[in-house]
């Protein structure tokens, strides 16, 4: 009886983790479609998808442990690497976009990076 109770809680938590993950990934892709410019879209792409994918991976980890008694280190490593690489790619894409001249949609023209770049150009 006790074992079945543990099984049920494990199953519920596995499905919860995977459902929450898919929800976050879905909303991140909706955000990419709805937001106005590349920078705000990157907000959606970097944040929501990292948490979504890590939560799905945690669900998979729990499933493998409960069902097949495998402690999968690869999944944990995958979470770590996603957390490490997603912000880096967001940073690189936004910087590249700015360098290639994509103007951000800004409220009352607050673009400090553009100002600094112009000052740098003037000095050199």
């Amino acid at each position: 009886m006790i074992e079945t109770g543990i099984d049920i809680t494990l199953n519920i938590s596995v499905s919860l983790f995977i459902l929450i993950g898919t929800f976050f990934v879905l909303s991140s892709s909706l955000g990419i479609a709805r937001f106005p410019d590349i920078y705000t879209r990157l907000h959606a792409a970097t944040k929501a998808s990292t948490l979504g994918i890590s939560s799905m991976l945690i669900g998979t980890f729990l499933f493998l442990y409960a069902e097949h008694d495998i402690v999968s280190g690869k999944l944990l490593l995958a979470i770590v690497f996603i957390l490490l690489t997603a912000p880096v790619s967001g940073h690189m894409i936004s910087r590249a976009a700015h360098k290639s001249g994509v103007k951000p949609v800004t409220a009352n023209r607050s673009d400090a990076y553009e100002d600094a770049l112009q000052k740098h150009r003037k000095n050199s």
Partner: peptide, 19 residues
Amino acid sequence: EIVKLVYKRQPQFEPGIFM
């Protein structure tokens, strides 16, 4: 916070870059 913004009917943005 991002999810809240995604599902708002009229998302309010005041984006900008600061230092």
